[in-house]
Design a binder for these strands. Structure first.
Lengths: 340, 340
DNA sequence: TCCTGTTGTTGAACCGGTTCGATAGTCGTG
DNA sequence: CACGACTATCGAACCGGTTCAACAACAGGA
């Protein structure tokens, strides 16, 4: 491969002149600039990333730490990842995807070795062992997901509390008085997935305020367990006329369940989900849903991260915690209740 | 951050001695080795990745090029990606995930700049513009998916031909004589997704040999189109007693369709799919299926890639094209036919 | 004509590792 | 006791970029 030395020799100038001609960081005569560019072109010169990183302390790579737990819904993760990689590339960065089980060790590895200019963390837990490491790291970071302690971090997440309230209010306004909320599996909560109870607790609170009965249960992440669970719930609460689903697997399984039971949506049962538009489209879910906008969140996190990476001024700005407000996308799966 | 110079000073030795003590590439006295390790520990020394890459021409990073087209099934991709990242990490490599639309340019960028020691390509098209670049690149590469011309490349893929034959044979043995095969959308084929017609043509051929009528149609990737399509097919071919599905979205949509039509599986209709076990589990698909083993394919590709990266001898071995044979996982969704 | 300022270019140093060749020190051997 | 062999360590060079300080050439002004 051609080095900048080769380009310089070919153009008949010094290495430094070649460097300046290519970067434009110093004035170079039109004549020389043309010769250098022509030489670079002729030799198919591409700067060596390692050498550049060493010289500039910039790698133009961002780290993306994602964790895949058995009981979480892997396909949903894809949208977050694409939001990050696509935006990063638009801004001139590549993405190092790290899925190591030991996230803290992985984070330490990529930051200490200076492989990345910044990091995006996903699957944030309430008490996340990666956060102290991130705070101490020389590179800035951004979180997709809300931890217990946000200090010193930029955080982006869906407003799950508001999502819970919107769901309850929507069905309450239609006249429903008894609802079921099916959340993620309990394991997710135990592992620190705070978003589960953020939505749940806000929904319960709002239901109490409105005088609505809300049966809140943990879900399952797999079939056939989740199908059995749904059936069990519909059996257990025959008076419930509305179903809130904060659980992709349950949403995916619901159509089969309602068909099997001869339930019509929304005539017999009103349904609201919470997932991404992509997920809804792919699985055809015919339910109104709160859009969780994973790609937008990933994109926002990267933009803020890159701002901090590139501007010393931005690095000293106060940290932000930004929630995107839940948007209810209607597919007509809710209606005034009729007793089941 | 501490450099190896700091470690050397702390241990009272030269930089080279510190380097040898840490790498073990030359004999170092027990005493000095201990001092160096202690110093490294005390200073939390981690080698700078850029500097090491520059010195050794090894980045310990693999590139993973994946493309996400609108009409393909994104969630399925996740399993491939995890197969690659997890195996790479086991072997000591990190993964640069590149999802750029212009794959050829992206490949050139990461190979020319020496950001990666090797590359895994996914979403291989029949005529893939990335392949000439990969062949000319100094780094080895591996493909997940079969292109028209495999020369000079290691290729890993499911044996889609055999998958088509297995599906047809299985239903033929049970006594079925009229089948429907629903494939991926036609766009996927137009873009060069050869696996679609590899399965389809082999199934058609085998059906001909067996005297079975096979209606082969292109599918859709989204709802509600795919649901409409399924209904249309069942209307159009009322005598068909078996359904072969090489299309994740169609498989996900089928339960609703059969419920709505009052069709029972397998009593009224035998069904065989082709997707990953993970996909089957997540969506509870109650169908027997050919396991497409994306994680295994990703893992195999990485192992071979790393062999070539690390051993000069392996780099000269002949290239391999390896198919994994389709395994039929039974969920009891097939039975001898009864007229619908 | 001399001084000052501007513009374009250069050599050298540096980033932080690895590795080669040389050397000092130790030991066994003839 | 001299010699060679071997071991442990060191200094220097190198990987391929970027950047700083210095300088040459030339213009304009006094």
């Amino acid at each position: 491969m051609a080095t900048i030395g080769d380009v310089a020799r070919e153009a008949g100038v010094s290495r430094s002149t070649a460097s300046y001609a290519l970067s434009g960081k110093r004035p170079i005569s039109e004549e020389v600039r043309r010769r250098v560019l022509a030489a670079a072109e002729a030799l198919a010169y591409t700067p060596n990333a390692g050498a550049r990183a060493l010289a500039t302390s910039q790698t133009k790579v961002l780290g993306l730490l994602a964790q895949f737990h058995e009981d979480e819904f892997a396909p949903a993760m894809m949208q977050y990842i694409l939001g990050v990689t696509d935006t990063a590339r638009d801004l001139g960065y590549d993405t190092l995807l790290v899925t190591e089980a030991d996230g803290a060790r992985a984070l330490r590895r990529i930051t200490d070795s200076r492989m990345v200019d910044g990091v995006v963390l996903m699957n944030i837990a309430q008490e996340d062992s990666r956060l102290p490491i991130l705070r101490a790291a020389p590179q800035p970071g951004a979180l997709v997901g809300l931890p217990g302690d946000c200090s010193g971090l930029d955080v982006f997440d869906l407003d799950f509390e508001e999502a819970g309230r919107v769901m309850v209010d929507h069905l309450h306004r239609l006249g429903h008085r008894e609802l079921i909320l099916i959340s993620q599996p309990e394991h997710v909560v135990e592992r620190g997935g705070a978003y589960v109870w953020r939505l749940r607790d806000a929904a319960l609170e709002r239901a109490r305020q409105r005088g609505v009965t809300l049966h809140a249960v943990y879900g399952e992440s797999r079939q056939p367990a989740v199908g059995r669970l749904l059936n069990g719930l519909l059996d257990a609460y025959p008076a419930a006329t509305g179903l809130l689903i904060n659980n992709e697997a349950a949403a995916a399984a619901l159509p089969s369940v309602t068909y099997a039971r001869g339930l019509r949506v929304p005539e017999d049962l009103s349904v609201i989900g919470r997932y991404s538009a992509e997920f809804a489209a792919t699985f055809s879910l015919p339910y109104s849903f709160i859009e969780s906008a994973p790609d937008r969140l990933g994109s926002m996190a990267v933009r803020q991260l890159v701002r901090r990476v590139e501007s010393p001024a931005a690095r000293n700005e106060p940290f932000v915690v930004r929630f995107i407000s839940p948007e209810l996308v209607s597919f007509g799966s809710t209606a005034p209740p009729r007793p089941r």
